[in-house]
Design a protein around this nucleic acid. Sequence first.
DNA 1: TCTGGCACTCTGCCTTCCAGAGTGCCAAGA
DNA 2: TCTTGGCACTCTGGAAGGCAGAGTGCCAGA
Lengths: 359, 359
Amino acid sequence: MYSERSADERKPDARRLESRRPLDERKLAVLRAIVQDYVGTEEPVGSKALVERHSLGVSPATVRNDMAALEEDGYIHQPHTSAGRIPTDKGYRLFVDRLAEVKPMSAPERRAIRHFLDGAVDLDDVVARTVRLLAQLTRQVAVVQYPSLSRSTVRHIELVALAPAKVMLVLITNTGRVEQRLVDCPGAVGENVLADLRSRLNAGAVGRPLPEVPGALEELPAAFEPSDRPTVSVVLATLFETLAEQNEERIMLAGTANLTRFGHDFPLTIQPVLEALEEQVVLLRLLGETADAGMTVRIGHENEYEGLNSTSIVSVGYGSGDQSVAKLGVIGPTRMDYPGTMGAVRAVARYVGQILAES
Amino acid sequence: MYSERSADERKPDARRLESRRPLDERKLAVLRAIVQDYVGTEEPVGSKALVERHSLGVSPATVRNDMAALEEDGYIHQPHTSAGRIPTDKGYRLFVDRLAEVKPMSAPERRAIRHFLDGAVDLDDVVARTVRLLAQLTRQVAVVQYPSLSRSTVRHIELVALAPAKVMLVLITNTGRVEQRLVDCPGAVGENVLADLRSRLNAGAVGRPLPEVPGALEELPAAFEPSDRPTVSVVLATLFETLAEQNEERIMLAGTANLTRFGHDFPLTIQPVLEALEEQVVLLRLLGETADAGMTVRIGHENEYEGLNSTSIVSVGYGSGDQSVAKLGVIGPTRMDYPGTMGAVRAVARYVGQILAES
DNA sequence: TCTGGCACTCTGCCTTCCAGAGTGCCAAGA
DNA sequence: TCTTGGCACTCTGGAAGGCAGAGTGCCAGA
């Protein structure tokens, strides 16, 4: 799995991927050329076409020899005798690990990103804009996870009496996320009790990371009159439940129409992908496997989920400060423009982080 | 456009759709049979197959004559000489208006719907469950609009001081919808002012339909000290803005994977549909065209949006009381099982309404 | 008004054929 | 030992042709 590290760190990993004999420079150049051409044309690429389009400085016959070696090592593959070659998952892997440079966004692109995201009015809007932007930039399916509760801290807790025995609990996090729950209390709740509870809740929880909140508020019921304790307990229970509901994490999606540019054997590939995209659980797990730092690229069969076996996923964490609070990424065919996609994903993640930090 | 009305009311409408000579009973039966068979097989249906599968009591030759008449009137159409017939949009229209009975859900189905929706914990969950249920029942793309702000009433308005000059405004509606906005105040806001404002806001707004709220609160700043008025005005402005933002209406979608069962000429049909589905605006307009009472069916070219010209949309309003607060529906190929789809849509809308009314 | 019969016309599918692209291998050259 | 030109071979994709099957339109008779 690709992670952004320095070249020195990276090498031992990459070497493990190769088989017995190391690939010489030219073979790597051939592989790179094959990947680039195949991504461009979607057609198996032959030796003659290769030397024409790339200045490899050798003849087609030589390239053929290299190709044979690459094929034997499993980096490329021939759909049938006397057809050109297409990269295998392993070939893409090597390409991403050693042959590709993440392509930085151009200055105008960066300006456009900034500009587009700056217009957002609230968290929902930030996420919505981000996902659309990413889909547009990469022309693929984009996925953005809402800043997760588990990494954020409490900004405020509010209690609102809606009816004598009904209280609405509102939790606001530093990432701008708002969660609300209706609480059915065992009996009528006095406004003074509510006010007291409100201020104690905030005193104990504000500024804390969500997972720590239950510990900090454990002793709270003891501070109240015995007659009020059931109410306090119910409210607390609801609060803890809300905090714990990490699986309630939301995800936003855009660019599914880009799936139509997927491949030739269309319905077969696209249906499982669409199904996967509808399963929040699958998407969350997918994003969850993203490394905490650096970009993650999962290629074809490296993917656990079967329906996504012919897709690649480029994902990265983003956050308001230095640590990531959520992930985002794109899903596209294994035959994708990795450098460009990775560049776009990284740039978008960076800017979203900035926007979140500012607000 | 189909609307559910009594048979008597319906007739004049239907008659207008027919051409000069009225279609006799048998021709209608033939059309009905054609629609049913075509929906089942997806293949043009011929005269011989028709008499075999349906007990029309006449010979293929007779059916052929009827078909010729139906074709002349534009209800069916021949892809090419010596092929079977397929219904036109006009044919489906007639079928829906006069030949189809909305198919009621079976008792087990109704129980399943109820059961599935009953488990919902909050509004988000209700909508999410509804849309998935609808997609599953109809095996098509389901669309559910969140209960709209414009029809609901204020249940509570809450103000929360987050920082000296930052206030969070939370609006809770009777449909369970919660909207929040961050307000930047011109200066620090005292807690007593905030409390005063809070209670006055609620006194003036609670129970009112959202559109009436601005009128009811117009005079509010006058009740405060001149020094506090700028703050009050800003909060009010933000509140009104929130109320006015009807275009912020949200929509939830499910079942896009069902598009893969769409037709043969796949990528061509599916891409514009996927694009349309990503445009909230398009979807909202689509649902917006739903009649306020009764079900609406829009078939093929009756649809404004070009990308949906080969799809039909079955939509209906749903609501917590007797009046509808939002719409839901499904989008599928014009060649869809109208009676079944309409039955499912109606049933789901009814149960969602009940759930909303209970909560 | 309905029906059986008949000639006619399409499509869809299968087969055949052919050019084009690409390969693997070999022997010669650097 | 690596590179290269040459050559025979293979496979796909598209075009062309042929054919069975399904379906129609029309006509004359009941």
